[in-house]
Amino acid sequence: MYGYLDSNYLATGYVTTKTDVYSFGVLLLVFLMRREAVDRNSGHEELTKDPKLNVSDGQIQIETIADRKILEEVRGDEQAQQQLKDFLALVLLCIQLKTEAGPDMIDVAKELVRIEKSILP
């Protein structure tokens, strides 16, 4: 469970509707990076604390985040690359430190559907 809990919950012990959004965002990040939420080999470093996710200008490149196998699958397919970028943007909204400013789960679900439909003929 550690690694999936947002800092607001850890600080207050209160569960909000945004607590699940954060945890779901971590799960999506696990899928995207193909890494565990907590790296037990590096002193329990949390995936959301990965320095690649903290870019000051807000321009995080999908190529530095996504697993290499995922990137290989979308290489040359502009629609799939855009879908992957939209997926990363959604993940970053879900795992932001100020969880109360994040999206509601219904909005996350709607965005996932929009992303899925964006590549369908």
Rank of each mutant, 00 (worst) to 15 (best):
A109G: 09
K52N: 06
K117S: 11
V30A: 08
K85I: 08
S42M: 09
Q59R: 14
E45K: 15
K110C: 09
I60H: 00
I65R: 00
H44T: 06
V74W: 03
V74M: 01
E63T: 11
G76A: 05
L29T: 00
L32I: 01
T17M: 09
F24K: 07
E63R: 07
Y4P: 06
E45P: 01
D77T: 05
I65M: 06
L28P: 03
S118W: 01
Y22S: 07
Q96S: 09
E36L: 13
L112F: 00
I62Y: 04
C94W: 02
Q61L: 13
E100V: 14
K69G: 11
K18V: 02
V30E: 15
E63I: 07
D107Q: 13
I119P: 03
I106R: 13
A101L: 15
D20R: 08
A109M: 13
S42Y: 06
I119N: 12
G3D: 05
V108H: 04
Q81H: 10
L10K: 12
L97S: 12
T64N: 13
F24D: 10
L53P: 00
L10C: 13
I106P: 06
P51D: 09
D104M: 11
G58F: 04
D50R: 01
L32G: 02
I115N: 02
E111A: 08
Q82W: 03
A89F: 07
G102M: 02
Y22T: 06
Q59P: 01
A11N: 13
I60G: 00
S56C: 07
L32P: 05
F24P: 11
L88Y: 01
I65N: 03
Q79N: 14
N54T: 08
A80S: 09
L71T: 07
K52A: 09
S7C: 10
F31M: 14
R34P: 06
